[in-house]
Write a protein that binds this DNA or RNA. Structure first.
Lengths: 269, 269
DNA sequence: CGGATGCGTTGCGCATTACGCGACGCGGTG
DNA sequence: CACCGCGTCGCGTAATGCGCAACGCATCCG
């Protein structure tokens, strides 16, 4: 019998991996949209296996709570067990790991590169980056630092008290960099008011960006989520609209962070 | 060969379920604590299979991103794929489903019954319930309604604007029920201030409760999370401490809710 | 009304595949 | 250095999961 001899089965399974399990997991991974419903036949097509195989895989996943069906037959949705495990999986993961899926989604939707920064040694340290879809875009900035007063994310970190400006002169990266502390304070006040920060060529000419804070429930700022791209795509007129999307994603990440620890220490009443 | 002939394998697999997949999923379900790390040998023991089998199952789960290992070998933790799927799984689930795991955890920790209520027709409708561990406790209240002014969750819904009191006299469920509207308003104001509500025998003599709001990011109140029990266990002196736990769990649920929809509608810049 | 299409499930029989076994390499401990 | 426990890897076997096809059930349409 040739069984499932179809070409290379997408990714030929390496040493010591179990076929049926890989297929089951590929069923789970087939879900990409929230609230998505997939039929057995559809899954069979995607996995390139027989209906019956997909049916049995699905039945197994359902009985373990990883999938769920609305009625007796037909629609498959992600199950409650995944809610539980998702909650657990978030714990013990670092901020960039938690933020990654959301950042990827945002970068894919808007096409521009998204970065995640935290304060470090008086600068903004980039600890996460999701590439956009354009050929022209932000270089790899992971692990690099940028001045707080000349970037959108740096300004956010300043405005929300996550970072403080080192003493001394404010260096001028470009002619448009804000070097006057009073002017900077005014911009930070406005930033705090509207909830997001921007940068228009003040770090590098032709580079624009918007950033929003990732706020913990107690109001402290944990990091800044930033979207940047060339000024001819990330236009000044669009900054507000983009900022809304970035701020939304930032709140989503904050919500994920809030899930991290379980309920508080076990001391009863 | 007897293969894995060990007794009944916990739950004997029904019709058309796939053994290896079930085992793989049982590995995932073995994780119950946040940040938990399990070794291959430990998993083999729990599943009652040979080390090599557990190793192969784990390898498959790792290669699909459902598990992850710190170093080359050794520690297994839940993987990033579960973070992604957990986020998706939350979407399209109803509030009680989302809240369930958190409520169960709280009920198990404190021993008392936890309920979830939303406003409905001028009353508080209970849409979720996790039983406590004591023999004496709240009866099944699912689907039932209670007056807004005489319960802790009802007061929360009132105070946070999720519900409005129907016109007319406030009925006295017990001698301790607040029937004076001015007195009620005063209590609601205080409730809003401190963030949680209580009820001491004003719904039923001997029954105490504390409740906290489940607040959406925009500040609106979606539901109330309530813990209740007999007054000799849920003592007046302990209400504040209990309320802190309930409020914490409520915020956790709110965070889960905030994950529900994906990023906003696809309209680009 | 009934043939046709597409869905999901179940029984069957075969051989693929996943299993248990044991060997090996490693790291920590007495 | 022997010992233990860990994780992985070949091997050979047979148990198991697969494809096949038949069935029941909806929906659609001539």
């Amino acid at each position: 019998m040739s069984r499932n001899s179809s070409a290379a089965d997408t990714e030929l399974l390496g040493t010591g991996r179990i076929q049926s399990v890989e297929r089951a997991l590929r069923i789970l991974r087939a879900f990409t949209e929230p609230g998505q419903r997939l039929t057995v036949a559809e899954l069979a097509r995607r996995l390139d296996v027989h209906k019956s195989t997909a049916s049995r895989l699905a039945a197994t996943l359902v009985s373990a709570g990883f999938l769920e069906r609305g009625g007796e037959n037909d629609p498959l949705v992600l199950g409650p067990q995944l809610v539980r495990l998702g909650r657990l999986a978030v714990s013990g993961r670092s901020l960039p790991e938690i933020a990654r899926p959301v950042m990827d989604e945002l970068a894919a939707q808007l096409g521009e590169t998204v970065t995640l920064s935290v304060p470090d040694a008086g600068q903004a340290l980039t600890i996460g980056q999701s590439e956009g879809t354009f050929a022209v875009g932000l270089q790899n900035w992971l692990g690099k630092r940028a001045p707080l007063h000349a970037t959108s994310d740096g300004k956010v970190l300043l405005a929300f008290g996550a970072a403080t400006l080192p003493a001394g002169e404010l260096s001028a990266r470009t002619p448009d960099t804000i070097v006057d502390r009073a002017a900077l304070d005014a911009e930070l006040a406005q930033l705090r008011e509207r909830g997001w920060g921007s940068s228009r060529g003040d770090f590098e000419l032709g580079l624009n960006g918007v950033a929003a804070p990732i706020l913990l429930p107690d109001g402290t700022c944990r990091a800044a989520l930033c979207l940047s791209g060339p000024a001819y795509r990330v236009r000044s007129d669009d900054l507000a609209a983009l900022a809304a999307r970035v701020a939304f994603a930032a709140r989503r990440i904050a919500a994920l962070l809030d899930l991290a620890p379980p309920l508080p220490d076990p001391q009863d009443a």
